[in-house]
Design a binder for these strands. Sequence first.
RNA 1: GCUCCGAUGGUGUAGUCCGGCCAAGCAUAUCGGCCUUUCGAGCCGACGACCCGGGUCCGAAUCCCGGUCGGAGCACCA
Length: 499
Amino acid sequence: MDQLNQLSLEKQLEIASEKYPDILHEEHKEKEKKLPELKNVHGKVVMRLAPSPSGPLHLGHTRLCILNDEYTKRYGGELILRIEDTNPNNILPEAYEMIQEDCRWLGVNFTQYVVQSERIPFYYETARSLIKQGNAYMCSCKVEDFKRDLMNSTACPHRNISPEENLSIFESVIGNGPLQEHPVLVIKTDLHHPNPAVRDWIAFRVIEKPHPHTGRKYRFFPLMNFCVAADDHDLCLTHVIRGTDHINNTERQKYIFRYLGWKLPEYFHYGIIHIGDVILKTSLMKKGIISGEYTGWDDVRLATLRSLAARGYKPETFRKYWVDSGLNDVNADFSWEIFNSINRQYIDKTSDRYFFVSSPEKIKVDDAPETKALLNLYPNDDSRGFREYTVTKNPILYIPGQDMSEIENGDTIRLKGLYNIRKEDGIYRFAGTEVHGEKKKIIQWVSEDSIPFTIKKPDGDDDHGLLEKRATGKNGIIQLERYSFVNKVSDSTALFLHK
RNA sequence: GCUCCGAUGGUGUAGUCCGGCCAAGCAUAUCGGCCUUUCGAGCCGACGACCCGGGUCCGAAUCCCGGUCGGAGCACCA
């Protein structure tokens, strides 16, 4: 090989073309984008989705759902939907059901459903094992003191209490007896760990608020890192993929695996995709819904799955977008441009075309004969049917205010499917029916008896105008020509989808 | 500040592990052309990127060092 490499490039090519002609004629085939293979796959894989039930799923969650679903479908195996509801302060009771519905809508089929609040005794048992080993201790330091000790790598007074005493404190706390202070259970790691985030961390804390599922049965609730470690092992997870925001959590969780001699799943952390222009914080959405600012979880301004579905985004769009984005470990920005373009591919063929005139302006067309307008429901495809109108002579019509403002005296424009008009001295006149010839601006129009229509847009600004009459009674995703795709939900309203 | 991570066109990615099929592919956006009675779809074309500086090597987007920039985490949230 070294000898080969000494040769000039030409020489190498010469030899290569004689001996291995194939390798020089490799064409670039267009590949369907595919997720990389998982490491360490031995047969089936077990993966999980672990949302907290603070609200329904939103755009941000869909990435994790799709990625995990793609892998469990590829390799076969289990996809566990695990509801992380060990913080009673952060639960929307309806969310348990909503999350499952959202997954099904996305085409994500989880094969097991686990609710953490039903597994508290298991967490207690795991905690007891760690306490007995001396790897966990009960602590009642003040929050500030606890943090200060960690930063200074010093042990708090409780760190050296005997396992027996810790166990008895633990039992009394979970036994719902009287409490003077609010103790926590701490997992011992390494006070000198270079990363302060990994030093002794809190595994359980007292929350007196009743839990929507378990009421007052428990008050000593495990925190995320503890449940995740215990459950990932108990549920036999083989692979865990999640965002880089969990890297430190993974380090913390590994201590429990080590203490208990558990086999680690294969971890993969991907870069965080920042999604701009929308509200994704469930707490903010909830606040807005309670205050009445938003109409509900499917309000057009929110980026919940419900809202996006209501606007007309397809499940396939989410899947393709996230598969195309891959598992890059670099943080990136979400691209609405690309997302919308993908969705357009899925909806264009099935969307009928109609005219909507935004900010309508009235015009009268002089010298116009009575005319029949025949408009395709879908361009160039007569088999899809037509919208047919008889327009009276010298009619009153409405055109978009935006277009109206751009018409100069002397301009001829085409009313699509009808005829041409020319503006002279501020008056509109019939200007023939010739479609071709001189290049004209082509605009949509509606007649006087059209219906008032509102488009609700995600930015909160609604567009008002007139919708052509033949659209009456037909709901679903349609394209309003020269305006955008929308999901028509009634004869007076549609939700804005995208251009 | 501490720990860790990363850097490919306007945007999103492929390639980086195992240096040569990469004078860098795809998508999207933009611009032009064709088609079309939509600013949609389709077809064709153009534009446009390996963060900077060193090093190793016949050869570096790919390996090494330094710098710069960016990000994630540092909760009794998940």
